[in-house]
Design a protein around this nucleic acid. Structure first.
Lengths: 201, 201
DNA sequence: AGGAATATTGTACTGTTGGGCAGGGCAGCG
DNA sequence: CGCTGCCCTGCCCAACAGTACAATATTCCT
């Protein structure tokens, strides 16, 4: 399994070769031309347009990791959003680099432990606040009604919900009627909007 | 390396034992008493107070993974925020479970690929990044189709959209038909879920 | 025992939705 | 001048959604 390190000339770091026998240093141009599905690619965040490169390579099926001289949670998220599966310090120890490679190769995500809390915290505040609200919204419902509401919120039809919960379509409608009444919405459309917290006009 | 599965009695799943020779099923009480540093623990999200349990075990140094019958990006974020390092479907294949264990044991994070984009997307937008996804989704539509799609995404009925755009209901349907075909969705429900890119599992 | 809440199902009805078929008009392009 | 794409509409129909008016069963509380 070769590991490609995408960087400009002066950025070569001995630890990279120490970490992987088959480490190869390439320019962004070479990476675009060569890297493909299954390759492990490391992209330096000091390259111009590194996010585009990450997106491109990730779309091709490469396992992309981003290395930075000044790691931050913000940059980590940008990397992840571009399709990277790993993010870390460019001067990480060889053992850590190998660990990142192992994790990302197995569909995992790797972020420095000290950034993890911030990254996840940010995500949680964004969606977590909503889910809190979702719990509130659903708390007035019975178990059965909640199950129906969640299934409907996934876009399922009455028939599909009926199959999933092993009840008749009529019963699904009965639960839905109760849900609409309790939540004060007029149909499943508004229910979805309520549960995904978007502006219901 | 033993793997502890925390669940209520009837939730035992044969795949767990198939995945790990040393799998052990325990109750939440037993987990609190036994699990410690270095242990691999799997917590079912249908347990009452599972987030508290995850926090406790994670603080003790256990590697906690959360399993759910209805995975969602929100629940994944809740799990991560509580200190879990992995999140997945309770009925995942044994091989997938082993992969999750491998990744999390090496300081990685594991989230189902289909949820990854949502989780990261949410985190990214939370920290001030731009959301481009919706524009991408709508870019293949004509002006009129886009207007209809956005109105429908607000939960408006065909009749309401018709009034807003000053066209007949039939024309709204015509545009909607084209939208469904272009975006590959089957109805307005799925369209809404696509445009708000949430839970659609 | 009686009431209240929950869960389940039935029949019947109205309204919405999605789409097939069939046509208009308008703008741009070779 | 045809051709194509976009926009608009009519009639009709099958499927789905939501609700009114029921009934039955279980559980939990008074």
């Amino acid at each position: 399994m070769t590991e490609l390190f995408v960087c400009q000339g002066p950025d070569e770091i001995p630890r990279w070769r120490a970490a992987f026998d088959e480490a190869r240093l390439v320019t962004p141009q070479q990476a675009r031309a060569q890297a493909g599905s299954g390759d492990g690619v490391w992209v330096m965040s000091n390259l111009a347009g590194w996010q585009g490169l990450v997106s491109l390579l990730a779309a091709r099926g490469a396992t992309v990791k981003v290395l930075s001289y000044m790691p931050s949670s913000r940059e980590a998220l940008r990397a992840m959003n571009a399709g990277a599966r790993g993010y870390g310090h460019a001067l990480s120890a060889p053992e850590l680099l190998r660990q990142m490679a192992l994790v990302t190769r197995h569909q995992g995500i790797w972020v420095p432990p000290e950034l993890l809390a911030q990254v996840m915290g940010g995500a949680y505040r964004a969606l977590g606040g909503e889910s809190q609200h979702q719990d509130e919204t659903l708390s007035g419902l019975t178990d059965r009604e909640r199950a129906v509401a969640l299934a409907v919120a996934e876009g399922q039809s009455n028939k599909e919900v009926a199959r999933r919960l092993e009840i008749t379509e009529r019963t699904v409608k009965a639960h839905l009627g109760a849900i609409f009444r309790k939540l004060g919405v007029r149909d499943r459309l508004q229910l979805i909007l309520r549960l995904s917290q978007r502006e219901a006009v």
